[in-house]
Design a protein around this nucleic acid. Structure first.
Length: 773
DNA sequence: TTAGGGTTTG
């Protein structure tokens, strides 16, 4: 049956069939017989309808509901997850919103696969049988009821000294309860309201649990029976006999759920209206800035509020407790690792999370030890005014990076402190969402139904996840300008994650090119000796021309027995040009010949090489033929010039043997001349950017595949060099901003090289090709 | 009675 709407909450009760018993969520167990039970609760969270591939596209929706009855608020597990299936999932999605009250009947009870993580309830409800039914009461605020006009609330600018008052306010500052010098714990807070007056309130109370449940600046608090007193030209408020406090989340449109430890308290529709009004007003006052600091955005020396889950704890010494916590985000800086013997650690082993830079180590001191001592692993925590500090690890070398640790120093200045947060509070919705993304990390996770797991990955409908590590997900979702050609079965990660990874590894990233070097692209063509691994720039023409000029000056032709020589005088006096051909090759076509050139300038040999495939420049030394200095090409072949490695080539050649070579190519020429040939390579350094970080990555070994152009071909072809320029102008259009440049998919190889006896992490673009346009 | 905010030992 579809979801049925009723007008108010009490109508829900009339919908309960007489055969069904309204049951408290806290009392539900796996062995409960659900057939005669129904539950009534408020919808705290509603996910989207998703299609489950493993169940033939069956549609499912997950919701979190919480029991409303305040009398039950002290029992455990008042919240529970509900899974709706098929048409009921769609109906629920359309008809029910967060904050509505629902009555659920004819559900089945199963084990919650996420209880270890969310601590909500050991069970979950499944609404998938045809009799399952939902009644909903929308959470619209009804009109005032005369019976509720019981309390009068005084605006904060109308407080008079020595009067007993009730007030509402938005919390602008607060301290966790601390021991006073008298007999009580003391809570101090400051509140404001639409009058814009700020008032300090003090609450003395022996029992910690009776102090107000304030979770963050921006919370709304109602104070009953407080005394207004003048102090230093201001009015302050202090609790008196019969006092009570109720607090509410200050987030607009979040469910209005009262927090209090009072056993009975009045709370009606007028209170809801007052909370709504204050939420709306506070939202325009910028009272709650900087509340969502996550581990991924923490910077050294910051003071910040931090919401997280406790993974493990250890007593370091009598004055210090270590709390190992996480919030599901990865820190940008290496996190401090604190060594604790396993038997002294209470809670789970955090090794996997440590490796991923997910675990923050918080050292708690002094007055905060009392709270820390009672915390249990799995608890959700909020630290207030926590300090982030860069610390050296014992034995660390001076130039190694420092690690980020966290200290909760003594005292309560700026509200410094910590508290545990109830698992069901809406304040934790976004944290839980982020933690659920890491379900694969939990070695102890019990998942009894793999198909159900899919739904736990779905984000909530209306929660914006802080610091989502998938930057620009919408903008960069389109086809990229490059494609990966490898077979790595790896998910794309961010550059920030790449930087935190441990080499060696291959990974996939999507990024834009922020900058590349060399900007003069002809300089990206390099000469590389595969034997000694030397790399050098291609010599420029003026340097080569000088070598030819020097060699040609006063040159006397050499005289070799194996060669047929012809000489001619140049137009310049004293310079003779000679050409030598092995006597074996005389008569063969010029393309088959190896011609040794002596006394020519670079310009002359360049012109001659247009018509001759293999021209070897030589010079004469004591009438013997010898090679030119290897700064110059040892071979001209068409428009290509080939260079030899000075270090790895033989000093010269004597009596070369030309027989047995059918076709003279650069390899054969190099072999006969004793030259270790240098290869042409491309080398470009890219600075990649993906919002999360930047990385300098080389394009080197796979550069020819990247451009679909051979380096040696490009060396002699202006068209190919122009094509590279065109590609680079597409990747990084001239005068473009970073945002205007195309996203590109890269396969990155992360590796280390020795640099002055230190390991340096390098990044190289591999297995990546420009998509052919 | 007590507190009445305003950054640090580790």
């Amino acid at each position: 049956m579809p979801v049925e709407k009723v007008n108010n909450s009490s109508d829900l009760d009339t919908k309960v069939p007489s055969c069904l018993q309204l049951t408290s969520i806290g009392q539900l167990t796996l062995t409960s017989d659900p057939s005669h039970r129904c539950v009534k609760a408020r919808v705290l969270r509603k996910g989207p309808v998703i299609s489950c591939a493993q169940r033939d596209g069956l549609e499912m929706l997950r919701a979190e509901i919480r029991e409303e009855d305040p009398l039950q608020s002290t029992t455990e597990h008042t919240s529970i997850n509900v899974i709706f299936f098929d048409t009921l999932a769609k109906d629920f999605s359309q008809s029910v919103k967060q904050g509505d009250i629902v009555l659920l009947a004819n559900f089945t009870i199963s084990k919650s696969p996420t209880f270890l993580r969310d601590k909500l309830h050991p069970c979950q409800l499944e609404m998938d049988n045809k009799d399952a039914c939902v009644y909903v009461c929308p959470s619209a605020i009804p009109g005032p009821s005369s019976s509720e006009a019981k309390y009068v609330y005084v605006p904060l600018n109308k407080l008079k000294s020595k009067t007993l008052v009730n007030v509402y306010g938005v919390v602008t500052f607060f301290k966790q309860p601390f021991p006073s010098k008298g007999s009580d714990y003391c809570t101090t807070l400051k509140i404001t309201d639409q009058s814009d007056v700020k008032v300090i309130c003090t609450i003395f109370c022996k029992k910690l649990e009776d102090h107000p449940l304030i979770f963050r600046v921006g919370d709304i608090i109602r104070l009953h029976r407080f005394k207004a007193e003048a102090f230093r030209d201001s009015i302050t408020l202090i609790n008196t006999f019969g006092w009570s406090t109720v607090t509410f989340n200050g987030i607009i449109d979040s469910p209005i759920v009262p927090r209090t430890s009072s056993k009975s308290f009045f709370y009606g529709e007028a209170d809801k209206r007052r909370v709504q009004e204050l939420r709306q007003w506070a939202a325009n006052q910028s009272l709650c800035s900087d509340l969502n600091t996550s581990l991924s955005s923490v910077q050294p020396h910051m003071y910040f509020d931090f919401t997280c889950q406790l993974l493990a704890k250890a007593v370091m010494h009598s004055g210090c407790i270590l709390l190992k916590v996480w919030d599901g985000t990865r820190c940008q800086l290496p996190l401090l690792q604190v060594a604790v013997p396993p038997d002294e650690l209470e809670g789970e082993c955090t090794l996997a999370k440590d490796k991923m830079n997910l675990t923050a180590n918080v050292l708690v001191y002094d007055n905060h030890l009392e709270v820390a001592r009672d915390l249990k692993p799995g608890a959700f925590l909020r630290f207030y005014n926590l300090r982030a500090l860069l610390q050296k690890v014992p034995g660390q070398l001076p130039d190694q990076p420092e690690h980020l640790g966290f200290h909760l120093h003594g005292g309560t200045v700026y509200g410094r402190g910590l508290r545990s947060l109830p698992a069901e509070t809406p304040d934790l919705l976004s944290l839980k969402s982020v933690l659920e993304k890491h379900v694969d990390l939990d070695e102890h996770e019990e998942v009894n139904d793999g198909t159900l797991l899919e739904i736990w990955y779905t984000p909530p409908e209306s929660i914006v996840l802080p610091n989502d590590e998938n930057p620009g997900a919408e903008e960069n979702a389109g086809p990229a300008y490059t494609v990966q050609t490898c077979e790595h079965n790896t998910q794309r990660i961010t550059l920030a994650q790449v930087k935190r990874s441990t080499p060696p590894l291959s990974c996939h990233v999507r990024a834009r090119v922020k900058k590349y070097l060399p900007q003069q692209l002809y300089q990206c063509l390099k000469l590389f000796c595969s034997k000694c691994k030397t790399m050098k720039d291609v010599p420029d023409d003026s340097a080569v021309a000088n070598i030819f000029l020097e060699s040609a000056r006063d040159n006397q032709p050499c005289d070799e027995q194996w060669a047929a020589t012809s000489s001619a005088n140049s137009r310049e006096p004293g310079r003779t040009i000679s050409m030598h051909v092995s006597k074996d090759m005389v008569g063969k076509s010029s393309h088959m010949q190896l011609i040794f050139i002596e006394g020519m300038t670079l310009d002359e040999i360049s012109v001659l090489s247009r018509d001759h495939k293999n021209l070897v420049p030589v010079r004469s030394e004591n009438s013997k033929m010898t090679r030119m200095d290897l700064t110059a090409p040892f071979l001209f072949s068409g428009k290509k010039r080939y260079y030899g490695c000075k270090q790895c080539s033989r000093n010269t050649f004597e009596n070369p043997v030309f027989t047995g070579v059918e076709t003279w190519d650069e390899q054969a020429v190099a072999a006969v001349l004793g030259v270790q040939m240098m290869q042409y390579r491309f080398l470009i350094q890219f600075e990649l950017d993906d919002v999360t970080d930047t990385i300098e990555a080389l394009l080197w070994e796979d550069a020819e595949r990247f451009f679909h152009i051979s380096a040696v071909d490009a060396s002699g072809c202006q068209d190919l060099q122009d094509r590279i320029q065109t590609i680079m102008d597409t990747i990084q259009p001239p005068e473009s901003s970073l945002e205007e440049r195309p996203w590109m998919d890269f396969c990155l190889s992360v590796y280390t090289v020795k640099d002055n006896d230190r390991n340096k992490v390098c990044y190289q673009i591999t297995n990546t090709e420009i998509v052919k346009q």
